[in-house]
Amino acid sequence: MELQKIDYDEYRQIAEGIGRPLPIEQTESWAEYQKTVEGRTPYGYFKLVDGTRVAAIMSVMDFQTHGYHYLRSEHGPVWLDEPDEAQERQAVEAIRSCLRGMGSHAVFVRMAVAHELDATRPTLSTIPYDRTVIVDVTGGDEAILSRMKPRGRRDVRKALREAPVTCADETQRAIESFDEYYEVMVETGERDGFVPAPASDYVTMLEVLGPEHCRLLAGRDEGGRVVTWSICTISGTRATRYYAASRNETMRRHVSDKLVYFECCEMGRLGCEEYDLMAIGSEFSPSLMGLNEFKTKFCKEVAEVAPDRDVPLRPAAYAALVQARRLVVARRQRREDKARKGTRGEKSEG
């Protein structure tokens, strides 16, 4: 198996023959959006050739962060036919050999690899996932509802009756001013333990991808205040729930159920056939298990996907990054432990 660099026209021609939509991250539109993010540069389009047959294609980005470079192919390679472990092993070796030979300064390449291979490593800093929920959004609103689990249908019907929000596509409104949406995202980050990207990143995403590929859908309460919203990406007939945020005060009032159902119906009206709710937990990614109760009720089946894994291109440099990462995590853990002890001490003194 051999990896060959190709131009976009050849990449697009191969993609059109696959018979299913590319993941949004493997499209030219996504590469254009990524160019607007500091430290990210399109690296090229490639095809994996097995003898005389094209086996897969992949779009690769160059990421510069914390003083080093790495390459990333999100949800790539995109295989024409599902590979077995031997084919994936050959592909990983071909990709590593080609990228190392291109003179890149990248320390590793991060890509989707279904099987745990000797050449792969767990990702340094992101949380990969190997399962997701993909909702069939064909056939209209009632058909979408009928295919949910009983618990999902019950919660959606309750939300439609009682959830105090009105849902709408607010893509253009968010582009004009993102302040009220960002306020909800900051609150979500404080609750769930993450730091949101700058507000400008979300606006740029909506602007560069455009309404053909990216929409913001929101729910507002009786006073007209945004209490929940999501950004959905669209690639052909596949939509993905990329970002989502909600206020703490509405967590138990089924507003998120109402918005997700609205999103499913809206994506169906836009011509999509599938709506990927993007990532749930498993033994591979136990830290995401908290997502399962909410997401799995919207579909009777769980889909397996190839998770991100790192493939070192410069092993010594990659080993140094792994060690540095361990030290950072250890220091953070010591600070958290110290803070917890201090809090317990203050309470006991009181």
Score class of each variant (00 low, 15 high):
185 M>C: 12
181 Y>F: 06
214 C>V: 06
167 C>K: 12
171 T>I: 05
149 K>H: 09
156 V>D: 02
210 G>N: 07
204 T>Q: 08
190 E>G: 14
169 D>H: 03
139 G>E: 05
171 T>H: 00
162 E>I: 09
146 S>Q: 06
184 V>N: 03
129 Y>L: 13
144 I>P: 02
183 E>D: 13
179 D>S: 11
132 T>R: 06
187 E>D: 11
213 H>F: 03
138 T>F: 07
146 S>E: 06
166 T>N: 08
146 S>A: 09
189 G>D: 03
188 T>W: 01
173 R>E: 01
152 G>W: 06
175 I>M: 11
202 Y>M: 11
200 S>Q: 06
170 E>W: 01
180 E>D: 12
194 F>M: 13
205 M>T: 02
173 R>L: 03
213 H>I: 10
174 A>W: 00
211 P>M: 13
130 D>V: 11
127 I>T: 14
150 P>S: 11
149 K>Q: 13
143 A>L: 04
157 R>G: 10
181 Y>N: 07
153 R>Y: 04
159 A>Q: 10
134 I>A: 05
136 D>K: 15
216 L>H: 01
140 G>P: 07
137 V>E: 00
168 A>Y: 01
175 I>W: 01
206 L>T: 09
207 E>P: 08
155 D>L: 13
185 M>P: 10
206 L>P: 07
168 A>C: 09
211 P>S: 05
163 A>E: 07
164 P>I: 11
207 E>I: 14
201 D>T: 15
145 L>F: 12
152 G>Q: 08
132 T>F: 06
209 L>S: 05
125 S>C: 06
213 H>N: 08
147 R>C: 12
141 D>S: 09
208 V>W: 02
179 D>W: 03
125 S>V: 13
147 R>Q: 10
193 G>F: 12
214 C>Q: 02
131 R>A: 09
215 R>N: 00
215 R>A: 02
202 Y>F: 13
155 D>V: 15
157 R>C: 15
137 V>H: 03
157 R>W: 00
200 S>C: 06
143 A>R: 06
173 R>N: 03
177 S>Y: 01
201 D>E: 10
158 K>C: 14
192 D>V: 12
154 R>D: 08
178 F>G: 03
181 Y>P: 05
138 T>I: 10
160 L>T: 13
162 E>M: 11
206 L>F: 00
202 Y>Q: 12
205 M>C: 15
176 E>K: 10
217 L>K: 04
198 P>R: 11
181 Y>V: 11
217 L>P: 03
129 Y>K: 08
213 H>L: 09
131 R>V: 10
152 G>E: 15
128 P>I: 10
154 R>H: 07
151 R>Q: 14
166 T>M: 06
161 R>I: 15
139 G>N: 12
189 G>V: 08
146 S>F: 06
175 I>E: 02
139 G>W: 01
204 T>Y: 00
164 P>G: 07
158 K>T: 09
204 T>M: 07
169 D>I: 14
136 D>Y: 04
198 P>Q: 01
156 V>G: 12
206 L>C: 09
203 V>L: 04
150 P>D: 13
171 T>S: 09
167 C>S: 10
178 F>T: 13
191 R>I: 15
202 Y>L: 10
148 M>F: 09
185 M>Y: 01
128 P>Y: 01
185 M>L: 15
143 A>N: 05
165 V>H: 01
195 V>Y: 02
146 S>N: 11
152 G>D: 05
141 D>H: 04
139 G>F: 09
